[in-house]
Computed example of a mutant assay.
Amino acid sequence: MSVFQTQQGPVFDPLRLGERSLAIKAVFVLAGTLVLALASQIAVPMVPVPITMQTFAITMIGALYGWRLAGVTILAWLVEAMAGLPVLAGGAGGVAPFVGPTAGYLVSFPIIGALVGWLAERGWTGANVIRSFTAHLAGNILCLAIGGGWLAVLIGAEKGWLLGVAPFILGAFLKSALAAAVLKAAQQYGDRVRLN
């Protein structure tokens, strides 16, 4: 069996979103945008790009919501930001973050959320810790590649790497490990609930 084929057995869906109504899914989208806004405020200020918990929240939403609903949720959050709501790191909002140094990272967010969600729907999460870690790390690395690429266009490749990629690599590994551990615990909890 290919690593990209759907796993045998029940699909990872601890929130049971597959069986929810459209209205309930809309509530989850709004809740997801709130989680993303809160995660954005957990930040270590750096120039030109701060370290935040955004990518952790984005990949978790991807794994928990699935690729479609995660993509919608992340896009809704970005629309809130473009509309001027203070939902990005440091309470930023408006158009400026989408044309400045953080633009590449922001553009990558729906892509990485959908990627992790797509992999999760194929068994790359929950009980399979190695695949879960790999899925989250792939999302984080893709975010750094897109964000760092945009930053390189603005300030040059060397500075883009030094300021926009290298400082975030360790965090990408740590956030990916944390996400895999949390999802493993969620899977185990869900299995115990189903057995009782």
Rank of each mutant, 00 (worst) to 15 (best):
residue 134 T to E: 04
residue 3 V to W: 08
residue 29 V to G: 05
residue 3 V to R: 03
residue 88 L to Y: 00
residue 90 G to E: 02
residue 105 Y to N: 06
residue 31 A to K: 00
residue 68 R to M: 08
residue 194 R to S: 15
residue 66 G to Q: 04
residue 58 I to S: 03
residue 10 P to A: 14
residue 20 R to W: 12
residue 123 G to Q: 13
residue 107 V to W: 09
residue 75 L to N: 10
residue 87 V to K: 05
residue 7 Q to V: 09
residue 144 L to M: 10
residue 187 Q to H: 14
residue 52 T to V: 13
residue 184 K to A: 09
residue 109 F to P: 01
residue 137 L to M: 09
residue 20 R to T: 12
residue 66 G to S: 10
residue 72 V to W: 04
residue 24 I to N: 09
residue 94 G to P: 10
residue 34 L to G: 10
residue 73 T to Q: 05
residue 171 G to I: 11
residue 188 Q to F: 01
residue 83 A to T: 04
residue 8 Q to Y: 01
residue 139 G to S: 03
residue 177 A to Q: 08
residue 174 L to F: 15
residue 166 A to C: 00
residue 37 A to M: 03
residue 50 P to T: 06
residue 41 Q to D: 11
residue 143 C to L: 15
residue 106 L to P: 05
residue 10 P to D: 11
residue 60 M to F: 02
residue 49 V to F: 01
residue 128 N to I: 02
residue 138 A to L: 12
residue 23 A to E: 12
residue 75 L to Y: 03
residue 89 A to D: 09
residue 155 I to F: 12
residue 127 A to M: 03
residue 154 L to E: 10
residue 70 A to N: 01
residue 40 S to C: 06
residue 94 G to T: 13
residue 104 G to W: 00
residue 148 G to Y: 08
residue 52 T to A: 13
residue 108 S to I: 02
residue 185 A to C: 03
residue 42 I to L: 13
residue 61 I to V: 14
residue 54 Q to T: 14
residue 173 F to D: 12
residue 128 N to K: 15
residue 29 V to E: 02
residue 58 I to G: 10
residue 55 T to V: 08
residue 44 V to L: 14
residue 123 G to H: 06
residue 19 E to W: 10
residue 153 V to F: 14
residue 83 A to R: 11
residue 57 A to M: 04
residue 149 G to K: 11
residue 90 G to T: 04
residue 31 A to D: 00
residue 132 S to A: 15
residue 49 V to R: 11
residue 114 A to F: 04
residue 34 L to I: 15
residue 36 L to A: 05
residue 37 A to C: 12
residue 157 A to Q: 13
residue 120 A to E: 05
residue 4 F to P: 00
residue 132 S to Y: 06
residue 59 T to Y: 10
residue 60 M to S: 13
residue 133 F to P: 06
residue 132 S to M: 07
residue 3 V to Y: 07
residue 110 P to E: 09
residue 126 G to N: 01
residue 166 A to Y: 04
residue 85 L to S: 02
residue 176 S to A: 15
residue 172 A to G: 15
residue 2 S to H: 13
residue 51 I to E: 06
residue 149 G to V: 05
residue 106 L to K: 14
residue 54 Q to D: 02
residue 133 F to V: 09
residue 113 G to W: 01
residue 112 I to W: 01
residue 114 A to L: 01
residue 155 I to S: 14
residue 172 A to C: 14
residue 194 R to L: 14
residue 96 A to Q: 12
residue 107 V to N: 06
residue 192 R to M: 09
residue 41 Q to C: 09
residue 115 L to K: 03
residue 117 G to Y: 07
residue 12 F to V: 10
residue 166 A to Q: 14
residue 182 V to T: 14
residue 64 L to C: 04
residue 92 A to C: 04
residue 63 A to P: 12
residue 68 R to H: 05
residue 30 L to E: 03
residue 116 V to Q: 07
residue 156 G to M: 04
residue 57 A to T: 06
residue 90 G to H: 05
residue 101 P to V: 10
residue 178 L to N: 02
residue 65 Y to R: 07
residue 48 P to D: 13
residue 124 W to A: 06
